[in-house]
């Protein structure tokens, strides 16, 4: 057992500037502030003893609140001078995991601490399962990269502006691309699956074009879409369409050509030729939309000469 004590400590003896043990949540949750206002500090704050002074182990926000409130002294749990700092961390993390609701920014920081304490490949499984983190070297490596990306990334993780899978995807992007994609995802505010689609597309376009991800994000059409006077949903839709076209140039050319030929064919309103998904397989269909029998008769009458003409073959041309 770690040597610990419970006693009152004067606030002046505590070094609030030592943030070695701080895990920042990067979120503005008012829950703790409300609780402190209602009930004050309920559990002892955790401190470590060093050269007769104290550093904070757990309870940074509560201590700041107490200081702002002008408190003199607090009831604290003290890890005594010379105690094993690794054990201190382990107990702090055990406690944090039991408190529930760990956001992604905290998750990244905790994994970084665990990797430091145990080595990246030796983190005990119960910590990882408590964090819902995959016990794979590649996943741990990505979490470590995320933890090292700095406050902007951690803020985006904590706020949910960047989802976990997209964050893992961009974790090893180099700086210019990383900064741009982070700004992009924060601006688009799109769902997790769309975030993943966008970052994967950007990566794959860069690989296909043998350029960098930053260069893809700097392409004029991307910048133009992002600068349009549109809401974030419209921007997301426009960007997805553009990226899909660049990622799949042959398919998108075929689609455009098909659309042009179909329009040129001049089928009556309410009649539409529908190709198979991605033109795969031989099952084309014709859709007719109408409200009354005479409308259907009219569509048939007008469509018949169009369908009989060899202009129709152009629609099917590859």
């Amino acid at each position: 057992m770690t040597e610990v004590d419970l006693c009152h400590v004067g606030l002046s003896q505590i070094d609030l500037g030592d943030c070695t043990f701080e895990l920042r949540s990067f979120s503005d949750s008012n829950r703790l502030a409300d609780s402190l206002a209602r009930a004050g500090i309920l559990d002892p704050v955790w401190l470590g003893e060093k050269s007769g002074k104290f550093f904070v182990v757990d309870g940074f926000k509560r201590l700041r609140w107490a200081k702002d409130k002008g408190s003199d002294c607090l009831f604290c749990r003290i890890f005594k001078e010379g105690c094993d700092l690794r054990r201190v961390w382990v107990e702090k993390l055990e406690k944090r995991l039991c408190e529930g609701e760990i956001n992604l920014a905290e998750k990244a920081q905790i994994i970084a601490v665990l990797a430091e304490l145990f080595g990246p490949g030796e983190i005990p499984g119960f910590f990882l399962s408590g964090l819902k983190a995959a016990n794979r070297p590649e996943a741990i490596r990505k979490w470590l990269l995320l933890a090292g990306k700095g406050p902007r990334m951690l803020e985006a993780l904590a706020s949910g502006e960047v989802c976990e899978r997209a964050a893992m995807e961009i974790s090893d992007w180099d700086d210019p691309g990383f900064d741009s994609v982070l700004a992009l995802l924060r601006a688009l505010k799109c769902s997790a699956s769309i975030q993943v689609e966008i970052v994967e597309r950007i990566s794959e376009i860069a690989i296909r074009q043998e350029s960098s991800r930053a260069a893809v994000l700097e392409l004029a059409p991307v910048r133009e879409i992002l600068s349009r006077e549109m809401n974030h949903r419209e921007k997301t839709a426009a960007l997805r369409q553009y990226l899909a076209e660049v990622r799949n140039p042959r398919l998108s050319l075929r689609r455009k050509r098909f659309q042009r030929e179909l329009e040129a064919l001049g089928l009556p309103l309410g009649a539409r030729v529908v190709p198979p998904e991605a033109f795969e397989g031989g099952e084309w269909s014709m859709q007719l939309s109408f409200t009354r029998p005479e409308e259907l008769r009219k569509i048939f009458r007008l469509a018949e000469p169009v369908v009989a003409s060899n202009r129709l073959d152009k629609v099917f041309e590859k």
Binding site: R208, R250, L251, A278, E280
Partner: peptide, 22 residues
């Protein structure tokens, strides 16, 4: 390897295949 970055679509059997024109 760059092979998975080709222009694939999901085929009728669920497998990824190059777009049929390719």
């Amino acid at each position: 390897s760059r092979i998975v970055y080709g222009e694939f679509i999901r085929g009728l059997d669920g497998k990824m295949r190059y777009f049929r024109d390719i």
